[in-house]
Computed example of a mutant assay.
Amino acid sequence: MTRSTRTVDEQAFRELVTAHERELLLHCYRMLGSFADAEDVLQETLVAAWRGLDGFEGRSSVRTWLYRIATNRCLNAQRDARRRRPPEPVPPFDPPTPTRRGEVTWLQPYPDALLDTAPGPEARSSAREAVELAFIAGLQRLPPRQAAVLVLRDVLDFSTAEVADLLGTTATAVKGALQRARARLDGQVPDHAPRPGSPGERDLVRRFADAYTADDVEGVVALLTDDAWLAMPPAPHEYRGPAAIAGFLGASAASRAGRRFLLVPTRANTQPAFGCYLAGLDQPVGLLVLTVRDDRISAITRFLGEDLPRRFGLPC
């Protein structure tokens, strides 16, 4: 965009930024871990861009300019504890003592329908890892500016100089932050995951759904890795290992007095997922996401929230 095009009407502005909205939403989600907060910050970014359009000098691309605004808006949002940490829900039954209390209670799933298809096998693999729940949760445990540097450099492939300019810091500071972030995130993304939608993944997911909806705790446990986790954002309760997970699932089933779950398949964060309902489709209770490693399930993330299925185009 040149100086002669800086003064534009709203329609022209929309055409200018529409091509970048989806990737900016995903960027905000990586930074914040919450889909709802990412939507809010994206709107703030677009409003700020519109208001600041006359000051855009064209020294960088429109995309880079928008990423500067979005990144700094995300950093501002992370300073707001009220926005970042939702209230802890009260369980409808007395759950077993958790293995630990999770820190990232604001984590939410991201609909695969909003992900762009990458052009090649290597790009698809990289894009998949950069949105998996383990990676997103790992980013939330980093200091915010470290997370911003890692996303801008390793995921979005901005240069060190560009990241320094975006964040208003030095190249030396960027290199140091990136080194520390990489060290802390090492091993956060599970490997040996089957190809999304492969026959092996489909069979494993089908067997899980059959066992889970039948309250067949033993059947679910048989599909888990030895180090599997069950988490339930925004509740902080986390259960590690088949025995602990079985204890929670058994207590949950007993509390429902025969009322079973219905699962409607979808995909979130490039992973198999389900809209979760009680008593047919008239009572949504959240979204369930599976992390698959080899031929087993290494994590079950049961996101609580009646409105979550709606975000995935499911009945609500």
Rank of each mutant, 00 (worst) to 15 (best):
T225A: 12
G258V: 14
V264I: 14
L262G: 02
H237Q: 14
A228H: 01
A246H: 06
A246E: 02
R240D: 03
G250E: 15
A228M: 12
G247M: 11
Y239R: 10
A253R: 11
G241N: 07
M232H: 13
L263H: 01
D227L: 13
P233G: 01
A246P: 03
A257T: 15
G241L: 06
R240Y: 08
P242W: 11
R256G: 07
I245K: 12
P242M: 08
R260P: 09
W229R: 14
L230G: 06
P242K: 11
G250A: 13
Y239F: 14
A243N: 10
A246W: 03
H237A: 15
A244D: 04
G258S: 10
A235I: 14
A254E: 15
W229Y: 05
P242V: 09
V264C: 05
A243C: 06
A222L: 02
W229K: 09
F261E: 00
A254K: 13
S252H: 15
E238R: 09
D226K: 12
V264S: 05
L262F: 01
A231P: 00
A246T: 04
L263V: 02
A251I: 11
A254W: 08
L263R: 01
A231V: 01
P236N: 13
L223Y: 00
T225M: 09
I245P: 02
L263E: 02
F248H: 13
T225H: 04
L249I: 08
P242F: 12
S252E: 09
E238Y: 05
A222R: 03
G250I: 12
R259E: 09
A244L: 01
W229D: 10
R240L: 11
R240P: 00
A257S: 14
G247Y: 05
A243E: 15
R260A: 02
S255I: 10
F248P: 05
A257N: 14
Y239W: 12
G250N: 13
F248V: 12
A235K: 12
P265Y: 07
I245M: 10
A235W: 13
T225I: 09
L224C: 02
L224E: 03
G241F: 07
P234I: 10
Y239V: 07
R256K: 14
W229M: 11
A253H: 04
P236Q: 09
S252Y: 11
P236W: 13
A231D: 00
L262A: 05
